[in-house]
Design a protein around this nucleic acid. Sequence first.
DNA 1: CCAATTCCTGACTACAAAATCAGGAAAGCT
DNA 2: AGCTTTCCTGATTTTGTAGTCAGGAATTGG
Lengths: 212, 212
Amino acid sequence: MTQARIVPLGKGERTAQRIREVALEQFSRLGFERVTMGGIAQEAGVSQATLHYHFEDKDQLWRAAMLDLSAVIAEEERFLAAAKDAAPLDQLRMAMRLFIDLSWRHPALGRIVALEGMAGGERLDWLNEHLMGRRNDRLVRLARAAIAAGQLKPFPPEHIVITLQAAAVGVINLAPLMRAGFRTDPATPEHRAAHEHMILDALLSGLIVDGT
Amino acid sequence: MTQARIVPLGKGERTAQRIREVALEQFSRLGFERVTMGGIAQEAGVSQATLHYHFEDKDQLWRAAMLDLSAVIAEEERFLAAAKDAAPLDQLRMAMRLFIDLSWRHPALGRIVALEGMAGGERLDWLNEHLMGRRNDRLVRLARAAIAAGQLKPFPPEHIVITLQAAAVGVINLAPLMRAGFRTDPATPEHRAAHEHMILDALLSGLIVDGT
DNA sequence: CCAATTCCTGACTACAAAATCAGGAAAGCT
DNA sequence: AGCTTTCCTGATTTTGTAGTCAGGAATTGG
């Protein structure tokens, strides 16, 4: 996922990466304690002891897996930085478009935020510091600026940011529920297109001051 | 919470109820395996063995705690049944208003749906069967009818229902995140009022066909 | 007030999962 | 190829948690 180096990764680094990928998927879907080292090992095709060779303990593995997401966040930040002279509302819309695309490609991000954001505690603090704090602050500033410019309705900017993102990842995070409860798969191309349209055009327009 | 009987509860039933309340809070915030029987016992002020006296095992305690929520759902259903001749869109709006109110009073419901809806598995199936399946189906039918009547924009009705609810409980479920990341408490009266307004008037209006 | 029943507990067992470690296989280097 | 380092594993220990049980306390009904 990260592919920071161009040089072909050594064998060890390749294994560690595979482990991180499996760990990220499981941790984000199930939460820290529902996941077992044995389960990750099996899924990654290595012994359980190998996990402890590459990562000191379960907690370090969790952190390492999360840090793989920071590359994704950084990529998003670069796009936004390039548009930082546009109107706040346009930037916000662009940010949401990027977030939706990102959430389909890396559903682990939204899941982790939901999981740890409900539980609170040390891991949430860690995520805030290392993964999403800066990003969320930036979005809140954008929303606040858009309100000041008279483009967004004057709701608390923190609520706008959280609610928009919660709405955006709803059907993505809850894909198992949709499959089990509605026998419908939200990840088909048509559904994804309708979803992006619904969030960016329909829902978002409800927050925009008329005539903007 | 349920208070099904009026007769003063016996001592045992009172303890069992307190245990269920603690269990519901913890299970919904942390998920099944992050919660320990010892932790529940401590919080409820009883010994761990007492939990096993009242409930066969951890799984049964989980189910019992969830069933306390079914009384809340039933109450919601009664209100909706009384309005079942109104226009579909009005019913949907009313359902969302009820849901928001319910979610502030019983935040465990939204959290549990988020938690188990992401993870999938047996507990999700159980919840679908015993708690929310019928309710979600009803909402989807409402959305479908509102679309057919030309009142709602033609997005997949399942997506509309899930997205609206995800948006509605966003700041409620993620209260720990909002406190840790933004140093703001979403549960103050002003915030709650702004929140209801944002969901019901702003966001929802974005889904409504203009001129309705 | 006494007996019967319900309720609760401390001490224990069983078990699953995390963590450790000595040793051997594979990869990389000269 | 031969040597060195990196990588991985099976077997084992340690730890935390679910679940059991015999016995005692509290409550209830007569």
